[in-house]
Design a protein around this nucleic acid. Sequence first.
DNA 1: CAATACCTGTGAAACAATTCACAACATGAC
DNA 2: GTCATGTTGTGAATTGTTTCACAGGTATTG
Lengths: 221, 221
Amino acid sequence: MTDAAGGGWQKGNSAVTSPKTVGRLSLYRRLLYTLQSEGEQNVFSHQLAAMARGTAAQVRRDLMAIGFSGSPSKGYDIQGLVESIGEFLDGPTRQNAALVGAGNLGKAILTYFKGRRPKLAIVAAFDSDPRKTNRAIRGCPCYPIEDLARVVRNEDICTGIITVPATQAQHVADLLCRAGVRGLVNFAPVRLGTPAGVYVEDIDVTMVLEKAAYFARQTPE
Amino acid sequence: MTDAAGGGWQKGNSAVTSPKTVGRLSLYRRLLYTLQSEGEQNVFSHQLAAMARGTAAQVRRDLMAIGFSGSPSKGYDIQGLVESIGEFLDGPTRQNAALVGAGNLGKAILTYFKGRRPKLAIVAAFDSDPRKTNRAIRGCPCYPIEDLARVVRNEDICTGIITVPATQAQHVADLLCRAGVRGLVNFAPVRLGTPAGVYVEDIDVTMVLEKAAYFARQTPE
DNA sequence: CAATACCTGTGAAACAATTCACAACATGAC
DNA sequence: GTCATGTTGTGAATTGTTTCACAGGTATTG
Ligand SMILES: NC(=O)c1ccc[n+]([C@@H]2O[C@H](COP(=O)([O-])OP(=O)(O)OC[C@H]3O[C@@H](n4cnc5c(N)ncnc54)[C@H](O)[C@@H]3O)[C@@H](O)[C@H]2O)c1
Ligand SMILES: NC(=O)c1ccc[n+]([C@@H]2O[C@H](COP(=O)([O-])OP(=O)(O)OC[C@H]3O[C@@H](n4cnc5c(N)ncnc54)[C@H](O)[C@@H]3O)[C@@H](O)[C@H]2O)c1
């Protein structure tokens, strides 16, 4: 099972779907695409569970959260389930994201995301280095950091990806939040302070590697 | 709080420290370094909690796991705590990691890790592209993938980082596990199958961005 | 048209993680 | 001294998540 980097608000949500379930729905969708490309029409909870490395009961619980029903004899209709997860995760309108910090990692991510999700795209990059701005990087327009607030509003950007050096991360987070962004993915090894209501997902590669090394050591063959 | 990507075995551990606690200990250590560089000697649980964006009770519980005690009047001795976390996380001997797939992301990670942790280093990279092998990439020797088993054994590598295309990830994971690696960090959007006892930490950037976008939408200002 | 087999949906139980709350204690003030 | 203050360490309560287990279905078979 996966219990990767959580994510969180400042507190105070009511009966919403848990981040864990949301994450698994994203995973299920990806697995369903694979099944579709293999020509499958239907899938049982235990099959999806095997692919996701979870349990059948958990798959059923997660699908309950989006109110999708299967049939006891055929399982779940893949096409319908993909659409249902799509409505839930993507919402009605297309969502836009911005990346701040077009360095080594930022460029890798821009390349990676190119056209990956139809309803969720990185539509702008920002950098403070004038050699990187006012041109397209990996097909994505890169603006000077000074234009952040303006572009975020014009392009209706609601999610930010932070790939600037650690020292700059809090400053950039402040800019993004002030411009109205409500969700952040932070790659800098820093715990950000954000206004209540902003969701932050940290990806701390050092922490993850230390964890893997620790548990690797716990099973010395 | 952080509940990022979990990680997991196949099942069957006894009274070990939970991955969540291990992750937070790594975070605490980083925060303690900052305090040290500011000349601090001691820290209270509530201070560390504020920096980690957690609660004081949780910090105390986590430190209980490594059996480190503070004093009611001075709090915790920073130097001693750093050493204590170090003993716990790093173990007695230096640990070595390998990275497979020296592409965009792989190169970024090699750069990032250069000399970052004294007791945990990426000592080898592997690639199948002959243009990338038999030379140093970002200061790290890059070997042909065929040499993996030999190098892993010679260099005593116990942790692997997978940054190859999704289609190759399972194959590479098999190679690593067969060579004796017991911990993996997987960046490919694939759920790996691994022998029992191997710890896998997935970093699924698409999933994380979808999660952030989802929760961003739940707070529409 | 039973009888069988195997699935879904879900209440309830089990388990895991976090937070509460307080006794025990060290320090500093006077 | 002894009192007031503010912290640690931790059992117990709480909250959150996963798993169990089974009633209620729907096809398929003979
Ligand atoms: N490279 C990795 O694999 C990796 C892995 C994990 C985490 N990280 C973290 O991600 C961040 C970026 O890493 P990197 O290796 O890409 O670094 P980098 O130095 O290659 O890139 C940083 C970029 O941010 C830009 N920048 C600096 N200050 C800025 C500001 N105030 N506003 C806008 N842009 C600004 C720089 O011009 C540069 O282009 C760092 O915090 C690093 O710790 C990197
Ligand atoms: N670039 C990103 O920011 C990003 C983000 C998240 C996830 N990922 C994932 O990380 C992986 C790598 O991404 P990338 O952008 O670096 O891709 P890339 O194509 O730039 O790099 C892949 C590298 O792997 C090597 N390779 C291919 N097959 C191999 C094999 N069998 N053995 C050894 N080496 C092999 C290639 O030669 C290449 O150097 C992909 O699975 C991608 O989905 C990338």
